[in-house]
Each structure stands twice: as structure tokens, then as C-alpha cells.
């Protein structure tokens, strides 16, 4: 029994890693007031680029860098449409998802199904990995896991404790007041969208070169959408996103343990998506003022308008 619990928690961390990365990115983006529904597409682009570059060069970290660059580049489309052109952010984000999914399928065609022979070794942290229970669950994981935790904590520190972070948050709350402080709202929003895209692409890279070690069209399997829901669930706080993401990672893995109980495996496979609907339902009962959502989320900023 002990083995099952340790193993399940350990796998939950692995399955939650891409969710955490994408959720953190989306939080930064939404905190600046831009809703980005393109996470799923950017994730797919990140996955395919990371896979192709890793396959050709044999260096996974080169793949990761290339994926992040591609994710940032494609996010500029959404930034341009929603910030400069002041277009509807929902439509622009959806377009980014469709573009990303389609484009990744196209460029990844020759690589579909090819297995990757490289390995990303798990890092056993000295001392810490010897702690009973926790050592196995938290301190003998793959590099992406530590990276995701570090980035989430750094993002929390950045948003809550630094001057630049306050600028990002105030841009999302009241861009006009922010601009009177001499801050370039357009610039802050562009950077937030692009950084958010980089995080989503990193999540995709984890899926294709570390988790599945293969590429197939549609392999992101809705994880980008779950990340958007988790952003709300985490109340736009990267610290809360950590446990929210791993909770959902747990739902992804626990389905195989529940199979012997005689529940239909098809139903179990729906669990992460049902849970997503459930938390959105739960959140909608909450007092909207306590939700802490950025006040200007989804609203384009017209400079000089009264």
C-alpha cells in the first residue's frame, strides 16, 4: 500500500509538471490584462519543435531553448492582434490554438511516432532524496519538475515582491493609472504575453522529450485548456498554481489505479476533464470580488481615451 501511495504521488508530480508550467505562463499573461486562449496551440508548437531539434541534434536542452523561442515567436501574433490591433482576445486566442495545432501537425508529420533514444536522467538531490516518503516523491525527479517548481516560485516572487511585477499587475488592474506613472503599458503587455508563450512551449517540450518521448499530432490532449482553468482555480497566484497543477496531475495518473475497482476505463479517462468542469462550477459560486481576477482582463487599452 505504501508503495502505491508513494508511486502515485511521484507520478502525479510528473504528470502535473506541464500543467504547472503552462498555468504559470498563463498567470503572468493574464495578470497583465491579456487573456490568452492560445495555450494549447503554443504547447503543441513547443512540443513539436523540441522533439524535432532534440531528434536532429541529440541535445534535449537545445530542443528546449528552440521550443521556447518558437513559442515566444508565435505568441507575438496574439500580442499584436490583441494589444496593437485591440482585437477581441477570445477570438485571437482561439485562432492561435487552431494555428498552433495545425502548424505543429504539419511540420511534425515526418516525425510522427518515431521514438527518441535520448534520456533525461532523474536527478537525485543529495541528502534530500534519502528522506523517507518525501525523498522519493519530491527529490528524485526529472529536471523539468525542478525547473517548473523554480519557475513558479520565481514568478510568484516576481509578481508579488518586485517593482516590475507590480507594474505587470497594475497594468492588468488599471492601465490608465499605470501609464500616468510613466510605464509603457503596451510594452509590459507584449512582454507578458511573450513570456507566457515561452512557458507554454516549455510545457509542450516536457511532454514530447521527457514525458512521452515521441511526437504525435494532438498529443497535448487538452492540457492547455486545463491550464487556463487552473489559472482561475489558482486565483491568478503562481504559488497556489503549484498545488492545483499537482492535484490535476494526480487525477491524470490515479485512473489506472482505480481500474481494478470495476469502473469503466473510459469514464476514468474523462476524470481530468470532469474535474476541470467541476472546479469552474465551484469557482463560479464564489463571490466575484474575492476571486482577485485582474480588473481589466480581456479589455483592450485605448491610450488617451477618457
Amino acid at each position: 500500500m505504501e508503495d502505491i501511495i508513494i508511486s502515485t504521488l511521484q507520478r502525479a508530480m510528473v504528470a502535473g509538471t506541464p500543467l504547472l508550467l503552462a498555468t504559470t505562463g498563463e498567470i503572468i499573461c493574464e495578470r497583465s490584462g491579456i487573456l490568452n486562449l492560445g495555450v494549447e496551440g503554443v504547447m503543441a508548437i513547443g512540443a513539436v519543435i523540441a522533439f524535432i531539434v532534440t531528434m536532429i541534434t541529440g541535445h534535449p536542452w537545445l530542443g528546449v531553448v528552440a521550443a521556447m523561442a518558437a513559442g515566444m515567436a508565435i505568441s507575438v501574433i496574439h500580442a499584436f492582434a490583441s494589444i496593437t490591433l485591440k482585437a477581441n482576445q477570445v477570438v485571437s486566442g482561439l485562432a492561435l490554438t487552431m494555428l498552433g495545432l495545425g502548424l505543429s501537425g504539419l511540420i511534425g508529420k515526418p516525425y510522427v511516432g518515431k521514438p527518441l533514444l535520448i534520456k533525461m536522467e532523474d536527478l537525485n538531490l543529495p541528502w534530500l532524496s534519502d528522506i523517507p516518503w518525501l525523498g522519493k516523491i519530491l527529490f528524485s525527479q526529472g529536471p523539468f519538475f525542478y525547473l517548473a517548481i523554480a519557475l513558479a516560485l520565481a514568478s510568484w516572487f516576481f509578481l508579488e515582491k518586485t517593482r516590475l511585477g507590480i507594474q505587470v499587475r497594475s497594468t492588468g488592474e488599471n492601465p490608465k493609472a499605470t501609464e500616468t506613472q510613466g510605464i509603457n503599458v503596451t510594452m509590459v503587455r507584449y512582454l507578458s504575453v511573450i513570456i507566457g508563450g515561452g512557458f507554454s512551449a516549455l510545457a509542450g517540450a516536457h511532454l514530447s522529450i521527457s514525458y512521452s518521448k515521441s511526437w504525435i499530432e494532438g498529443m497535448t490532449a487538452g492540457r492547455g485548456w486545463i491550464a487556463i482553468a487552473l489559472t482561475i482555480f489558482a486565483l491568478w497566484n503562481p504559488g497556489r498554481a503549484i498545488w492545483a497543477a499537482f492535484l490535476f496531475g494526480g487525477i491524470f495518473v490515479v485512473q489506472y489505479l482505480l481500474q481494478p475497482l470495476g469502473i469503466s476505463p473510459n469514464f476514468l479517462a474523462m476524470l481530468p476533464y470532469i474535474a476541470t468542469l467541476f472546479i469552474l462550477l465551484l469557482i463560479s459560486f464564489k463571490d466575484p470580488k474575492k476571486l482577485n481576477a485582474p480588473a481589466m482582463l480581456g479589455e483592450p487599452y485605448n491610450r488617451g481615451e477618457r
Partner: peptide
């Protein structure tokens, strides 16, 4: 012991199913 993945091609699912089997001994 048998675990079902409902996918002919599902590396992530097969991985989790295998991990679950190993955790069960």
C-alpha cells in the same frame, strides 16, 4: 493483472499504466 489504456498509440497512457502496475507489485 491487466490495465487498459484505450489507445493503440498512447505513450503517456502506457507509461502511467505500467507505473501503476509496478507500484502494485
Amino acid at each position: 493483472n491487466v490495465k487498459w489504456t484505450y489507445a493503440w498509440y498512447g505513450p503517456d497512457k502506457a507509461k502511467e499504466a505500467a507505473e501503476a502496475l509496478i507500484s502494485e507489485g
